[in-house]
Design a protein around this nucleic acid. Structure first.
Lengths: 216, 216
DNA sequence: GGCCTGCATTTGGTATACCGTTTTCCAAAA
DNA sequence: TTTTGGAAAACGGTATACCAAATGCAGGCC
């Protein structure tokens, strides 16, 4: 256990509930998130809601208009392209940095892999996929690198969630593809050089890019 | 004219004033920034101060303790190392992406260069240096890349400011070094391929790393 | 019919007040 | 002298209230 301040503040729980609404698709793209309305719905005052919206903006799930009104973010194919370029810059780097440390934290990756193999929905596969990558980022021992990546993570989740809702992806197929790729990565971390890990992650991200044509 | 909401909110001006205090060294490393005290000093209520502190945390100038108290960030040599690794990942990439667009925005770079040559203090050189790099990031046409870089910029400024105050760097020398390096970069953008621009920026950042030993 | 105008309503920005928790500091005991 | 106990002060989290600006709609004007 780690980030549990014993009682999540109302700001945090407001952020969590809004995040869930957005990622699940309950709050559609472009929806206005008025402070008062959200506050009333969540049963808290406007102050925590305000902070939650600020947090979600940082995560890329919400955007503010020039006059300060908050809307659920809209994503375009260009957004996907931007995310791709940045993953390609950050994740291979993280893999190289993490390689020396990863011989120990491999256990976390393998546990993730085991859970992934039993996943029962595309959403679950997606979540575990991102978690797998985050484990590597955490092992990179570069706090700022992790922070930068996290500021992209929610957007990726949002993107993938929408994709899964518009195209009906096959759970089985997605699961097998993901876990096989991750398996190779874990093996690489266990036996290969940092440079090899970097190269492999680069390939992995390049492969992920193939999802792009699915943009609606 | 662009991002001028006609009257900066009190949150924004509070953030500006705090940022200036921190970057100028008026607020020393580790100083507690209590909401009430800051609010009283700036003549506003706690709410805008709260948001300003949140903003500055995002910029890396302030850090919160587990119990939510804000302190002026302390920087270690490892922080410099992290910033270096990330600049090395982001800026060459930005240069490559910007190269095709830069033939037009070169004017901005050249104007920056001209002003730099007349700079009269190390602080001014530093500020213009970062501005030069930011112009390139802006020309990369990747909003997220720019955003990630900006989240490092204030920290760089903080770092360099402290460096200049502890070691008495020569204005003349710093200025000449900086402007000569930037001159080469502008030439490259005007005549070379994206790949060449990327390589050159990589060299530039690697050279910048030589400042590291100056850590106290 | 389309466009401008003005008012009612909504919305965000900010000040103030209250409460529980954390810090701080001093005094008493080991 | 050091440690510890506890109380007072400081601080952050949040609710509420007020105001100015922005929005949206309806009615009038061209």
């Amino acid at each position: 256990m780690q980030a549990s301040p014993l009682s999540a503040s109302r700001s945090d729980s407001a952020a969590s509930r809004l995040r869930a609404d957005i990622l699940s698709g309950a709050a559609e793209s472009g929806t206005l998130l008025a402070e008062s309305a959200v506050a009333q719905r969540l049963g808290v005052s406007r102050v925590p809601v305000r902070e939650a919206l600020f947090t979600l903006e940082r995560e890329g799930l919400v955007e503010f208009s020039a006059t300060g009104r908050a809307f659920v973010k809209e994503l375009t194919p260009q957004d996907f392209e931007e995310l791709f370029v940045l993953r390609l810059a950050l994740e291979p780097l993280a893999s190289r940095l993490a390689a020396p440390n990863l011989k120990e934290s491999t256990a976390r990756l393998e546990k993730n892999l085991a859970v992934t193999r039993c996943a029962k929905s595309v959403q679950e596969v997606t979540r575990l996929d991102l978690e797998f990558h985050q484990i590597i980022l955490e092992a990179s021992s570069n706090g700022r690198l992790l922070r930068l990546w996290q500021s992209l993570r929610s957007e990726l989740e949002l993107w993938l969630g929408r994709l899964h809702r518009s195209h009906q992806l096959q759970t089985r197929e997605t699961l097998v593809e993901t876990s096989e790729a991750h398996e190779i990565i874990v093996d690489c971390f266990k036996s290969q050089t940092p440079a090899a890990c970097e190269r492999l992650m680069r390939e992995h991200i390049l492969g992920w890019r193939e999802w792009l044509p699915l943009c609606s």
